[in-house]
Design a protein around this nucleic acid. Structure first.
Lengths: 177, 177
DNA sequence: GGCCGCATGTAACACGTTACATGATTGG
DNA sequence: CCAATCATGTAACGTGTTACATGCGGCC
């Protein structure tokens, strides 16, 4: 009855959305995600699915006509309840708090670099973020064209995050540059 | 000669900044951080410090007059080089990419909730983020008053991130609400 | 029939977390 | 002087990662 991780909850969510499905179908969802929180590695998904079945959040039946005995997973009532509980506020404080940012982490120690190098740091990272921004804008617009409301919003979230990081980086450059 | 983690690099950074110091002094830095990427748990710091010493990025000497034989750690030339290499572009792609966001992750599955519950989700999460924003603005201003340029910028980064999340959440509410 | 990609796993590993153990120091 | 806190670790654990192994199916 241990608490589920976000990955496990997301697996429940995928099974909820894509109906009864095989572990690989779940994997593909993570593998295809344009803003991935997880790699979707087999070593994460298959064990997660098994844990969820053991805790009765998923139930499985053999896929008919599959010699390998591949299993098809369905969300149980308990699984649905767990998924809902994950979504219903209050969210855990860690979910609300500012998330770690590798660039911010680095900034703490930027003074190890000489001022020339620091300037280079700012311009290179800025360049990288601008590039990212373009990619994210593209995948946002792609999702929009496909009328996928959820995917559009997710992409939009990533886009706004990157935009904020870029704005922040520029402030930092003006401050320290 | 394995690649160092971000935590290990940050440890090098702390030793660089705070001069020769004990593991506990390093720990305190992480424990006190207002926007923590790591808990600063002993079980993370002490092993990291040992690994860094074994790889010759840190060197230690006994603290004089300490009966426990507590060790004082100094950055070696190799350690300084590793720290610089971590900071000098190009940064790894994962550092530039959009970072995971637990709220965004949840949004993917928001349709499990009925529309009343969805509205409640948006208003509660919005309330939470507004609260966070106030906290972060406060700690930003505190850092500013103390004239700590780096801490100010870090706090500013967290602030802008939360602001972006909030703006995004409101867009999402208008879209799905 | 042979090859290649799909699908289903498993194994070893790394790293950070919580919880625990223990000695030193300090405050009341 | 006793308790609480500081300081230094260690142990067990969970979870996700990469890399590997293997069997099936379709294609040429």
């Amino acid at each position: 009855m241990a608490d589920l991780t976000d990955l496990e909850h997301a697996v429940l969510g995928v099974v909820w959305r894509d109906g009864p499905c095989t572990p690989y179908a779940i994997r593909r969802h993570f593998l295809a995600s344009p803003s991935p929180s997880w790699s979707g590695s087999a070593g994460a998904i298959y064990p997660a699915v098994r844990r969820l079945e053991q805790q009765n959040f998923l139930s499985s039946s053999r896929t008919k006509g599959d010699r390998r005995g591949a299993r098809c997973y369905t969300l149980t009532a308990a699984g649905r309840a767990a998924l809902r509980a994950w979504l219903i506020p209050p969210l855990p404080p860690a979910a609300m708090a500012a998330q770690p940012d590798p660039i911010r982490t680095r900034l703490f120690f930027l003074n190890v670099l000489a001022s020339t190098e620091r300037r280079r740091f700012f311009s290179e990272v800025e360049r990288g973020l601008v590039e990212r921004l373009a990619l994210e804008r593209a995948s946002w617009e792609a999702a929009r064209r496909e009328d996928d409301a959820i995917e559009t919003l997710a992409a939009r979230g990533a886009l706004l995050q990157t935009r904020a990081r870029l704005a922040w980086l520029r402030e930092a450059r003006n401050e320290l540059g």
